[in-house]
Computed example of a mutant assay.
Amino acid sequence: MRTITRVEHTMERWAATVWSAVRRPRNRPIEVVSVLRRECDLNALILGRDRVLVPNHFTIELPYASHRRLAEHGPALGPELAAQVRGYAAERRYSFTGPVSVHLSPLPGDSEVRYRVRSRIAPGEPEQPCGDEMTRLLPLPPEPF
């Protein structure tokens, strides 16, 4: 039970840190997960009746000060956001070309932008079948007499 409580408190701290990092005074904070979901919906490629391909690589660009505050949580925050994207994709029956990744990076230069999300479809590593699997996938040619 203590472990669950600690995990919950850690997640609440991360969420509070993200909210404070990506908002300006008098502005409502952005909902990071909803921004990533919208990015999936806007960049979906319909490949067939049952196949919709969405981006699997996301970069959230934050102002330098916000990025610096979140840098210590970056290694744990990225996988948690990626899990949220995978869950949303499963609900919508979206598919990916490779593993989902979410990275935080600083915005280049001094800009008026609060944040920017970039997404792309990044190919994954193809799976190489080994010996027995290869013979199951590709039938052997008949032997000559």
Rank of each mutant, 00 (worst) to 15 (best):
M1L: 08
R2D: 14
T3K: 13
T3R: 14
T5V: 14
T5F: 12
R6D: 13
R6N: 13
V7R: 15
M11N: 09
E12Y: 04
R13F: 04
A15S: 14
A15E: 12
A15I: 08
A15W: 06
A16W: 07
A16P: 00
T17I: 07
W19T: 10
A21I: 03
V22F: 05
R24V: 04
N27P: 01
R28C: 04
R28F: 06
P29S: 02
I30M: 10
E31S: 12
V32M: 14
V33G: 01
S34Y: 11
S34L: 08
S34W: 09
L36N: 01
R37I: 11
R37H: 10
D41F: 06
D41N: 07
L45W: 09
L47G: 12
G48E: 05
G48Y: 02
D50W: 08
R51G: 01
R51M: 07
L53I: 09
L53E: 05
L53A: 03
P55E: 04
P55L: 10
P55V: 09
P55A: 06
P55M: 10
H57Q: 10
T59W: 01
I60N: 01
E61W: 06
E61K: 12
S66I: 00
H67Y: 15
L70K: 02
A71H: 07
H73G: 02
G74P: 00
A76I: 04
A76M: 07
L77K: 01
G78P: 03
P79L: 02
A83Q: 15
Q84F: 04
Q84C: 11
R86H: 08
R92C: 05
R93D: 08
R93K: 12
Y94I: 01
Y94A: 01
S95Y: 08
F96H: 14
F96V: 06
T97W: 15
P99R: 15
V100D: 05
V102E: 03
V102P: 01
V102L: 04
S105K: 15
S105Y: 03
S105F: 06
S105A: 13
P106E: 03
P106R: 06
P108E: 14
D110F: 09
S111H: 05
S111N: 09
S111Q: 07
E112L: 08
V113N: 07
V117M: 02
S119A: 15
S119L: 00
S119K: 02
R120W: 03
I121S: 00
I121V: 13
I121C: 00
A122V: 14
G124D: 08
E125N: 05
E127C: 02
C130L: 14
G131D: 12
G131I: 00
D132M: 11
D132E: 13
D132Q: 13
E133I: 00
M134Q: 14
T135L: 09
L138W: 13
P139M: 05
P139Y: 02
L140W: 04
L140T: 14
E143Q: 12
E143D: 11
